[in-house]
Amino acid sequence: MTFATGVIIANNYYAQPLEAALAAEFDAPSSAVGAVLTIIQLSYALGLATLVPLGDLLERRRLVVTTLGVTVAGLVVVAAAPTLPVLAAAAGFVGLTTVVAQVLVPFAAEIARDGEQGKVVSTVMSGLLIGILISRAVAGLVAEVFGWRAVFVLGAVLTAVAAVALWRSLPVVPQTTTMSYPSLLRSVLTLIREEPVLRLRMAYGASVYASFGALWTSIGFLLAAPPFSFGDAAIGLFALFGVAGALAARFAGGLADRGWAHRATGAFMAVAAASFAVFALGAHSLVALAVSLVVFDFGVQGSHISNQSVVFALRPEARSRVNTAYMTMYFLGGATGSGLSAVLYASHGWAAVCWIGAAFPAAGLLAWVVESVHRRRTRTVTAAPSTS
């Protein structure tokens, strides 16, 4: 499951280090290529809202493998796309169907032993995070040697291999509900309404991932332009500095199993926001970009694992739907940050991207402070002796 989530999610990130190559291939401005990346994020959010809940309604192994067949077909069309609109449409289908990675994550939590959910989820998520990082490096290297279209051919082959492996190895677990599909979708809204902790974690996740989308939508253009003038391979390899995110996943999972998820969330969001002070120096310093990327990915992924560890414990019988609510807002945040970044970079440059990148997790941190004060007051009132 860890291997498969990495392979599947990589398909959403192959295009990020190839922005300059795609712009040159289709004679398109940076904003148009940035829009393609935004479409992928929005499609992924749509899939989270409409496909991931099926993990509670259908037999998961069959659902995962069938959906991955559509992913493979979409990747083939991306590789052969004659125009940017065709590429964008096919990439949208890829983004829509790669949400099966988010069916596997709550599936892993369900089959984990009691007291080890945080560890198991963080293990599967570390595979997903490493897949994101490797996807950028592989995309850059393959594009440098064989051209950008070969990147998506490779993605199609790896996804097909993952589908076969999952079919052969996943256990068959009965569905957890028999309600109709419309009722299933409505129940997601019911969960959001009834679970205030879920609403808070959705806000935290969206704020941090918005900064992630803002950063990665524009950093490829920054590295391709002077004074760096990186090629596709160098841009992809530069993303490996974000390996700290995978380390943060395991660390955050351990903290969650010890009951420290709340404090860890605030700390990780503060780290993500603070990293942009160093990112701002990166317009002319490769060292500053590398250092800030390590710190930033540590904060982003640590907060994400902390959030997931909390929300999966809320309703064990509805983990896919809980994950739908959380991850839909998460990727809507990413799409928002990506769209704003594309516009701001084209009009105001890297400094504007850094400002908006810092503002999102700072807003999440402010909400966390308010929650912390409320929790402290609630504990004080509960602990106070009665005077009646």
Rank of each mutant, 00 (worst) to 15 (best):
T217M: 06
F146E: 15
L237Q: 04
A88H: 03
G127R: 13
A23K: 13
E195D: 15
L255H: 07
V153T: 12
L170S: 02
L189E: 03
T98F: 09
Y330A: 08
A244G: 11
G34F: 07
A244M: 05
I132M: 10
F298K: 04
Q16C: 04
G131N: 02
L255V: 10
V243G: 10
T97E: 10
A261S: 13
G147W: 06
D232Y: 11
R379W: 08
R62W: 09
Y326T: 08
V52K: 10
H304I: 00
V300L: 09
T382R: 15
G282L: 08
L84G: 00
P85E: 01
S126F: 02
M1P: 11
V121K: 10
M1R: 05
E194T: 12
A210E: 02
F152H: 06
S187M: 14
F312Y: 14
Q102N: 08
A383E: 08
Y330P: 08
L255Y: 07
A270E: 07
A10T: 11
S320D: 03
P196T: 03
F152Q: 08
L18W: 00
R136M: 01
M1N: 01
A21M: 11
E317N: 09
T159S: 13
S187G: 13
V138L: 13
F212W: 05
S303E: 02
A225N: 06
A23R: 03
V161G: 00
V105S: 05
R319S: 11
I130V: 12
G302P: 15
R263S: 14
F26E: 08
I235H: 01
A224I: 04
A23F: 11
